[in-house]
Design a protein around this nucleic acid. Structure first.
Lengths: 201, 201
DNA sequence: ATCATTTCTTATCCTACATCAAGTGTGATC
DNA sequence: GATCACACTTGATGTAGGATAAGAAATGAT
């Protein structure tokens, strides 16, 4: 069943009755997103959170010079949204796009508020999710402030081992924070040093 | 009264009865922190959140080369903690130090859990606080990926106008993500360009 | 007041990364 | 199966910001 994964993920943090589960599921809307399709674009108001059940999304911003910077990937089992826009109700700056064909469940902001009222435990659930996410961003910020591109790449490999061979390299570069050109050179160097290089292809 | 500020801040997001307020306040412990004193150091487990009622704290990490990187400042009215350590219960990597003599209220993790049970609305309160914090880190990450040091400094000036003339410049540099030397050069340049330079002294 | 410590500045040289430019695959589309 | 669009590579050159060093100014301790 397509809600199995999300119920499992919820069950890790809070315990729901059958009825509560049914109510929760009733608020979710399945969504099919084709590769390269956007579910959110710069300037739009983000009206829902998205839980990925298969495939992968990416959230990124585009700077003044047209360069993309990847904020997060949303592989299977992850939530993704433009949090700034979602909580403020103002137009956001993020784009969210499918990297591959993706199946997801969406939960609108309005329904999320209803959920908080009807099943207050969800306040806890989303608090915990948000806390974990916060810690990840803090760590990434520290990494960006203190590590070289090479070390950041190693961290990326550790943190998202499943993504390394799925993702176009330029997306990894945009996550690490280097140009595709430099990323290419860096890999060349790593391959020379170590024949068990992380990326094949 | 020294709990006035924190109750105001709570009241912005949830509504408490008199009794609830009393219970909440009973869990808070006043703490006086002298300038340069640490309330948390690398390798320790963070056991409480700290709400600053006056003065200012800073959270920073120290990298392999001994350089400090400021993750956040905790001026009056802000919460600060090593979230990673606090939620995982594992030794953390952050240091938290008073930049000036500071008065604060602490809430232990154990008491925070009690609070969640006794007044579930606090799940909501901390969810919202955490969400806002998450958005700030996201934005800062984007800034670090897409802006020059100069632009990041401008953002810092906008976001923390009150801190600019309070803080040692090297701390601002460690927040922006540049060396004190480069920060100094940058300012020199800005002063030349604009006689209304943000920092005096 | 004086000495010590730390912060801030300035100058010179250096490097990790960007930019620009010109390629080579490789898969989609007609 | 030719063309187009992209992802990726490689090389030459440029630059934002780092490293090192050394002095000036501010702060703090005695």
């Amino acid at each position: 069943m397509f809600t199995e994964l999300i119920l499992q993920s919820v069950a890790k943090h809070i315990h729901l009755t059958e009825d509560e589960q049914t109510y929760f599921v009733s608020l979710l809307h399945p969504k099919t997103i084709k590769r390269k399709q956007f579910i959110l674009q710069y300037g739009q108001v983000c009206k829902y959170s998205t839980f990925v059940t298969s495939g992968c999304l990416r959230g990124f911003s585009v700077d003044e010079n047209g360069f993309e910077h990847v904020l997060n990937f949303g592989p299977k089992g992850w939530w993704i949204a433009d949090m700034y826009s979602l909580i403020s109700g103002k137009p956001g700056i993020l784009n969210i796009e499918a990297i591959e064909n993706t199946e997801a469940l969406t939960l609108s902001k309005a329904d999320q508020e209803k959920l908080y009222i009807k099943i207050p435990q969800f306040e806890r659930f989303f608090r915990i999710i948000t806390e974990n996410s916060l810690v990840a961003y803090q760590q990434r910020l520290i990494d960006n402030l203190s590590l070289t591109a090479e070390d950041r790449f190693h961290n990326f490999c550790k943190r998202y081992p499943s993504l390394i061979n799925e993702l176009p390299k330029k997306q990894i570069a945009a996550y690490i924070g280097v140009t595709p050109e430099f990323f290419s050179r860096m890999q060349h160097k790593l391959v020379k040093m170590d024949r068990n290089a992380p990326i094949k292809r």
